[in-house]
Design a protein around this nucleic acid. Structure first.
Length: 841
RNA sequence: GCGAAAGUGGCGGAAUUGGCAGACGCGCCGGACUUAGGAUCCGGUAGCCGAAAGGCUAUGGGGGUUCGAGUCCCCCCUUUCGCACCA
């Protein structure tokens, strides 16, 4: 009897794997590859069980696929740039690089102690010049293609902290740090033209059949494609016409006024031309401020005012008033809309408030409400009325015709609008990738030549969090010679959004040490795309959309030969403690190191997989962890009990000469192989995979009870011995399979047991057991028999019984006869399952 | 407000294609072993009626389709998540 000492086994086998380089891999075109990836980590300093759940999920997949014969790439890295490290530096004075590298070292240790099977030779950290050099390289390729460009844009600005805030850092319109109301500020910003790929990103979603539907829908909505028309409304009194965007040109005869966003360029002209331009301007200014706040805080009362000007509806040729409204968005469409109060809820609300005319032009139902009596807009498609020559036609068919008509008359055109906007990547921050651009008075915006990459981040020692970009305060960094003319020039001092770093790191893993290119196309073509990607659903849009975009850009650059980087996606649920997400500030963190010290890495791994399916949120339970530990001890004990008798090489294989109990154990073994394999590989239901293994263990205990020495008990258990060769063979088959299949979950224990069973080769080199359907097939089946939908009896039938045989057996059963005598049998259904259903009257 | 997902024992959860509801685990109850048991092994455990055999009721609520519904359809309730004036 040997004792299960998980802490010792953890160390022993982790060292063995490292020195054997068990998880390092190379390109091997003769073998099928499998790229298993978990979203890399922000090095916050410690990983709690919520984080490591994701890594364990990936590790189950990686370890299983390895034993299933695949050449498995399973790398890990660090999303090492970012605000928290910089903010910590402002507070504590520790340089972000120091704290980041310390954090990485600690977290790496945590993951290694959990036995996650990473190819650590491929580890990357985005804050290393060797990595971010290629952020810059990719930026330059995008710059060359016009996909990286500069323009003024409005940002969130905190006037007290004197810095730009990301949208997520604005809480109810105020700065998250000091509570000051955020103001809009115009800044020159770099953008990536993701909108150029909008249609492609949308279409590509259709190919992502192994992604959660939810994520696909979120991306689709985020891209927000809508087809419509751009229509010109001439302004009475001359000048440029107002262009509006609409998806409902079929309602244009009901457009009784036009609305402009407060930021619309024409507003300033109207203000100048207004009789009281000061009052006009004041009202606009109020709206502009209000509008910004409304978008940050949510809903706000619709307000507007009449400009006093008129536009001409190009279809009705009527004069319609032009108003300015706070709910019209400047950044969507043309920043101007035609208002159709009868058929748009928002326009209806606005028209009622300001007593503007309402005209019904679509008859959606049999009732015809009057404009005066209607209480809400009717937004459905329907038959057109009050629409001149178009009367009687119906949307959506008529929409194409009307757009064609508008095009013919030169007053408009069909147009597609997206909700998706270009990706602003400038950050007025220190801890990120410098944007590789130089500004020269003579040559303007000049790209840093490839040979000068990387533009290294200088070591700034005093970070205050105030003022503009910290890099602007480093003269040695800022002042350079223009690469074109050699004259004095200035470097760009903004850094890149860290989402740039994470939008291609999965490609770098294919070739992580390349000094010339982000990666060589050949290994990338072998390893990519990622076959299995898991991570938090919070990245459903940003990271995953950016990655899909950058992958396509690199395809157009010629580095990759596919469109979609992630074949299968799993969004794992969070681990809660006391009903809340774990966080340092809440003090409800479960530290994997504590759990591991108490129960060992395997029990923790097993518990986290057993408690619920990976997608689901779970509540942490110490008792549950204890239960998983007990199960491992139970496995240990039964294997230990038998290993002397069944272990070693050259043992006989199972034959057909089985007793009933042996048959039944073999059946269970093979059925378990089938279930566990599909649970892991196909369904990713790791919890039911574990429960199948538990059933097999229960069966092994029961089987052991039938042998002369009984099941193992604590104290002085007898070593399990049997004489019969077939019993030994059947036990060996079951126990070997059990140990291999439990190894993804409990790799340290499994390796030790495998060794105790006398196998000379490490488990990491072993093949997954194969499933024999003939063995798993039962000799006889229990057939439930229903009478009028209720199970009244169970009859035993041969496994290959015909429908007729089953029907006869069912009707002959005594208790079924009790339910059928004196009644008429209307129908007997024999269903697959099998199951017999009798209908009586 | 709109959209999506979910709701199953005391608890976490199973039920793969419309076919035996509650696998597996936690907890609880009992037995064995024991000086002892908070260890281990074995057994029981949805609720109600019944001595038992057996029966009845049960997958948020109400209807429906079907020989048969946790699963499909309609209405309602609750929870969670996403979007939130995108014209």
């Amino acid at each position: 009897m040997t004792e299960f000492k998980p802490q010792q086994l953890d160390k022993k086998w982790q060292q063995a794997w490292t020195s054997a380089k068990a998880f390092e891999v190379d390109v091997d075109p003769s073998r099928q590859k499998f790229y298993c990836l978990e979203m890399f980590a922000y090095p916050s300093g410690y990983a709690h069980v919520g984080h490591v759940r994701n890594y364990i999920i990936g590790d189950i997949m990686a370890r299983t696929k390895r034993m299933r014969g695949y050449n498995v790439l399973h790398p890990f890295g660090w999303d090492a740039f970012g605000l928290p490290a910089e903010n910590a530096a402002i507070k504590s004075g520790t340089h972000p690089e120091t704290s980041t590298l310390d954090n990485i070292a600690h977290m790496k240790g945590q993951l290694q102690r959990l036995g996650i099977s990473y190819a650590w030779d491929r580890e990357i950290a985005t804050c290393q010049p060797e990595y971010y050099k290629f952020n810059q390289w990719i930026f330059l390729r995008m710059f060359e293609r016009g996909l990286a460009y500069r323009r003024r844009s409005t940002v969130n600005w905190c006037p007290v902290d004197e810095t730009v805030l990301a949208n997520e850092q604005v809480i109810d319109g105020a700065c998250w740090r000091c509570g000051t109301t955020v103001v809009a500020r115009e800044l020159e910003q770099w953008f990536f033209r993701i909108t150029a790929y909008a249609d492609e990103l949308l279409k590509g979603l259709e190919t992502l059949t192994a992604w959660p539907e939810k994520v696909v829908v979120m991306q689709r909505n985020w891209i927000g494609r809508s087809e419509g028309a751009r229509i010109k409304f001439p302004v009475a009194g001359g000048g440029d016409p107002i262009e509006i965007f609409t998806t409902r040109i079929d309602t244009i005869y009901g457009a009784t006024f036009v609305l402009l966003a407060p930021e619309h360029p024409m507003v300033d002209r109207f203000a100048v031309e207004s009789p009281d331009s000061k009052a006009f301007r004041d009202k606009v200014a109020k709206f502009r401020a209000l509008d910004r706040e409304s978008r940050l805080t949510g809903a706000i009362e619709k307000e507007g005012f009449d400009t006093g000007r008129k536009a001409i509806n190009p279809f009705t040729r009527e004069d319609v008033p032009i108003w300015i409204a706070n709910f019209v968005l400047a950044e969507y469409g043309t920043g101007a809309i035609m208002a159709v109060p009868a058929h748009d809820e928002r326009d209806f609300e606005f028209a009622r408030k300001y007593d503007l005319p309402i005209r019904i032009v679509v008859q959606a139902g049999p009732d015809t409400p009057s404009a005066e009596s209607m209480t809400e807009a009717t937004t459905n498609y329907g038959r057109m009325v009050n629409s001149g020559e178009w009367n009687g036609q119906e949307a959506p068919a008529v929409i194409t015709k009307m757009i064609a008509d508008a095009e013919k008359r030169g007053i408009g055109m069909g147009e597609v609008q997206y909700r998706l906007k270009d990706w602003g990547i400038s950050r007025q921050r220190y801890w990120g990738t410098p944007i590789p651009v130089i500004y020269c008075d003579r040559d303007g915006v000049v790209a840093v030549p490839d040979k000068d990459l990387p533009v290294e981040l200088p070591k700034v020692t005093t970070l205050t969090g105030r003022g503009d970009s910290p890099l602007a305060q480093v003269p040695e960094f800022v002042n350079v010679k223009c690469p074109k003319c050699g004259g004095p020039a200035r470097r760009e001092t903004d850094t890149m959004d860290t989402f740039v770093d994470s939008s291609w790191y999965f490609l770098r893993f294919a070739d992580p040490h390349n000094k010339e290119l982000p990666f060589d196309p050949v290994p990338a073509a072998y390893w990519m795309p990622v076959d299995f990607y898991s991570g938090g659903v919070e990245h459903a849009i940003l990271h995953l959309l950016y990655s899909r975009f950058v992958t396509r850009v690199l395809r157009d650059v010629g580095l990759v030969n596919f469109d979609e980087p992630f074949k299968r996606l799993l969004t794992q649920g969070m681990v809660l403690k006391n009903g809340a997400v774990m966080s340092k500030s809440k003090g409800n963190v479960v530290d994997p190191d504590d759990m591991r010290e108490k129960y060992g890495a395997d029990a923790l791994r097993l518990y986290v997989m057993f408690v619920a399916p990976p997608e689901k949120e779970v509540e942490w339970s110490d008792a549950g962890l204890e239960g998983s530990f007990r199960f491992l001890v139970r496995v240990w004990r039964i294997v230990d009990h038998w290993c002397e008798t069944i272990g070693g090489e050259g043992m006989p294989a199972c034959s057909d000469d089985c007793t009933g109990a042996e048959r039944s154990l073999r059946r269970k073994t093979h059925d378990t192989i089938r279930r566990v394999t599909t649970d892991i590989e196909e369904r990713m239901h790791l919890n039911t995979g574990v429960s199948s293994l538990m059933e097999l263990v229960n069966e092994l205990y029961a089987f052991s009870d039938t042998t002369e020495h009984g099941a193992p008990t604590r104290g002085e258990p007898p070593v399990g011995r049997v004489e019969r060769q077939q019993t030994i063979a059947v036990l060996k088959e079951a126990i070997d399979a059990l140990v291999v299949m439990i190894s993804p979950f409990a790799p340290h224990m499994a390796e030790e047991l495998w060794q105790m069973l006398g196998h000379p080769e490490a488990l990491t080199k072993t093949s997954w057991p194969s499933y024999d359907p003939a063995v798993a097939k039962a000799d006889e089946v229990v057939v439930p028999v229903q009478v009028n939908g209720k199970v009244r009896a169970r009859v035993t039938a041969p496994a290959d019984a015909s429908e007729d045989q089953m029907r006869e057996l069912a009707l002959a059963d005594a208790s079924i006869r009790n339910h059928t005598t004196g009644r008429t049998i209307v129908k007997v259904v024999v269903a697959k399952g099998p199951l017999v259903s009798v209908v009586v009257r």
